[in-house]
């Protein structure tokens, strides 16, 4: 089963296996290239010995023999190196969490907890909206009260004005003076009647 090493890829930006594959193919290419260069150099040197019996085919066989041997060791050594690098260098120990994921350690919220948190926030929003509109209603009533109070105070002032008029004209207590007035009227009416009777 392939271990995708996705967490390592999240950190390095590439999968460790790709990195190793990249190194492997590069090394292998070098080995092959170098062997071809070696072979070309030897063949070139042999041109300087026209009498020698070594054929290019022989040289090619020697090259393949050495390369096969090297390739075999190369693969063994490389898989050892890969094993060590994947274990010790290009891996993230299982007890380690990457900085961008730390939040998961600090807030390990389950789906239910998360929903509860979201619901609580919605509820708070509704409460706030209710409070805000209640506040507006209260402010509106305050405004209204101001107007009403002004009206009522105006009426009271009107009454005060009335009382003041009475006071200015010597009738401090309106009621008594009104009663007095009424009596006077009655007396006057009686006198009037009397006069009328006498005059007849």
């Amino acid at each position: 089963s392939v271990n995708p090493m996705a967490y390592e890829a999240q950190f390095f930006g590439f999968t460790p296996q790709t990195c190793m594959l990249r190194i492997y193919t590069a090394f292998q290419d070098y080995l092959f290239e170098m062997m071809l260069v070696v072979e070309r150099v030897i063949l070139k040197k042999l041109d300087g010995f026209p009498g020698c019996k070594i054929s290019p085919c022989q040289i090619r066989k020697s090259t393949e023999k050495f390369l096969l041997f090297m390739k075999d060791h190369f693969d063994k050594l490389f898989s050892k190196m890969e094993e060590v690098l994947l274990q010790l260098v290009l891996n993230i120990p299982e007890n380690v969490i990457l900085p961008e994921d730390k939040v998961h350690e600090q807030y390990p919220y389950t789906k239910e907890q998360f929903q509860a948190l979201q619901e609580e926030i919605q509820q708070l929003q509704q409460q706030y909206r209710a409070e805000a509109s209640a506040g507006q209603a209260l402010q509106a009533e305050l405004e209204e009260q101001k107007a009403v109070r002004a009206e009522l105070e105006k009426i009271l002032q009107w009454f005060d004005g009335l009382d003041n008029i009475c006071r200015e004209h010597g009738t401090s207590n309106f009621k008594e003076s009104f009663a007095f007035l009424t009596q006077n009227c009655k007396k006057l009416q009686a006198v009037l009647k009397d006069v009328e009777k006498k005059s007849k």
Partner: peptide
């Protein structure tokens, strides 16, 4: 450091494996 050490070791062992004796042995005629 581990990475550098491991690669150096790989190279060392590779060169040790592909020793001069081995090389001369393969290209014996030359």
């Amino acid at each position: 450091q581990v990475f550098a050490a491991v690669v150096d070791t790989f190279l060392e062992k590779l060169v040790t494996a592909g020793s001069y004796q081995r090389f001369a042995n393969c290209y014996r005629s030359f």
